[in-house]
């Protein structure tokens, strides 16, 4: 019942918030390219990058430690008009954090343990932050199998909370990318293939945000 009330409240708020500033959350599994995308958007519209990008999983770890990238007051112009938003780059969602796995990326044991500990906090905080977003970009790596429980759980939660979303099939600059697989996995949602690294199709993403989320 409480969830239903929250849902209705969110809908009403969204009506009044329409065409004002939205809180756009970036959700997705670890290493899908959320921070690269946040940086790209920030660079395009504010002229500066916001977060460190790394091959090592869980680079964006904890909201409390300030590792969450919040890009405030972004004004994006498209042919259909302008959008005003805060972009929130959240830690990647994971069901497991193994510090030994992190050591394979060259981290010392203590550093790997600390990063793993922060990563677990980051996952919890990212889940809790679902209550604070108006719309979401679910960022997936187009080179990976999209049928993962993480993707399914994220999208299921957004659907249950009635939060509008776009699926972003990232890393299409890579040879092995298969954005079609993501479209087939989530046919009920708008899927926009992009490369956050090269900026390919970013204009299409902005148009999709304008059309479906703003």
């Amino acid at each position: 019942m409480l969830e239903g009330l929250k849902k209705s409240l969110r809908k009403i708020t969204r009506i009044f918030k329409k065409k004002k500033k939205i809180q756009l959350g970036f959700y997705g599994p670890v290493n899908a390219g959320k921070t690269t995308l946040a940086n790209r958007i920030s660079l395009d519209w504010l002229g500066e990058e916001v977060g460190a990008v790394s091959e090592i999983p869980h680079e964006t770890r904890s909201i409390q430690k300030g590792s969450i990238q919040k890009v405030e007051d972004v004004n994006i112009e498209t042919e259909k008009g302008s959008m005003h938003m805060n972009i929130i780059d959240l830690p990647g969602i994971a069901t497991q954090v193994d510090f030994k796995g992190l050591q394979e990326y060259g981290l010392e044991e203590e550093e790997a343990k600390e990063r793993a500990k922060e990563a677990t906090k980051g996952v919890i905080e990212a889940i809790k932050y679902l209550d604070n977003v108006d719309a979401v970009l679910v960022v997936m790596d187009a080179c990976e199998d999209p049928y993962t429980q993480i993707n399914i759980t994220i999208i299921g939660n957004l659907e249950a909370r009635d939060i509008p979303l776009i699926v972003v099939a990232n890393k299409i600059d890579k040879e092995e990318a298969d954005p079609k697989a993501i479209e087939n996995a989530f046919p009920q949602h708008v899927v926009v293939p992009i490369s956050a690294a090269t900026g390919e199709n970013l204009d299409k993403l902005y148009e999709a945000i304008q059309e479906h989320l703003y």
Partner: peptide, 8 residues
């Protein structure tokens, strides 16, 4: 899905 995030 909410219970799944609770489990995570």
């Amino acid at each position: 899905p909410q219970e799944e995030t609770g489990l995570i």
